[in-house]
Design a protein around this nucleic acid. Structure first.
Length: 208
DNA sequence: GGAGCGATGTCCT
DNA sequence: GGACATCGCTCCG
């Protein structure tokens, strides 16, 4: 098999900024029956713990956000705006809150199935499939029922994150998108120049 | 290509 | 009751 093992819990047991940066360029793979939907992670955001007003964990542990306080490497999927799901992976050691939000992916294989799940014609532009946190969940059939609380580090998981051989990408950093608190904190990371990044930055970017 | 806005369910105050 | 880590559609330039 050409695929490596999933990234281990130790990878995620660190601060969300470090995990976010290192997730860029990795592969997110959804196994759906006999089909395998393969994507590359091109845009993420870091959300911290009690000290980050924009984070779901900001006001302490609740039934909804419990995953963020739990073991690292576990999927946190929530429902927002009455229509969309968003996918995160928990970071930091157990007991400490933090996570990374997946904002955009680059489709690598299984594009026809992704288009079907998105209810788009098979000819749809690839970036319409998985550019945006709600879109990528729809394209990979990720719902809260199926994946919230699922361990993404398990070799049996229907959703896995894998390393590959590609060199570390060039990264740009901007404030996070779509939030109303802590709007200036630079915690959005994306691969420079990737066409699947969800949108232009709100303010001047910081190149690294 | 960008601003405005409606749709819509769940959670917390 | 209000907020919400969104999307896709209008309308305007």
């Amino acid at each position: 098999m050409p695929f490596a093992d999933p990234l281990p819990p130790d990878f995620y047991s660190r601060d969300p900024e470090t995990v976010a940066r290192e997730l860029l360029g990795k592969l997110l793979v959804r196994t759906l029956g006999r089909k395998r939907l393969v994507t590359r992670i091109v845009e993420v955001e870091a959300y911290f713990g009690l000290e980050d007003p924009a984070a779901h964990a900001a006001s302490g542990r609740t039934a909804r956000n419990a995953v963020l306080f739990g073991r690292p490497g576990v999927a946190y999927v929530y429902f927002v705006y009455g229509m969309h799901y968003c996918l995160n992976v928990s970071c930091e050691p157990e007991g400490q809150a933090g996570g990374v939000l997946f904002r955009a992916l680059e489709p690598i294989s299984g594009l026809a199935e992704m288009a079907r799940l998105r209810k788009l014609p098979a000819s749809a532009a690839p970036r319409l499939l998985t550019s945006g946190p709600g879109r990528l969940c729809q394209a990979l059939a990720i719902t809260r029922d199926l994946f919230n609380g699922q361990d993404l580090t398990s070799p049996d998981s229907a959703l896995q994150i894998l390393g590959d051989d590609s060199p570390p990408p060039n990264i740009m950093v901007t404030p996070r998108i779509g939030i109303r608190k802590a709007v200036d904190r630079p915690a959005r990371y994306f691969i420079t120049g990737n066409p699947c990044v969800s949108r232009a930055p709100r303010s001047p970017v910081v190149s690294e």
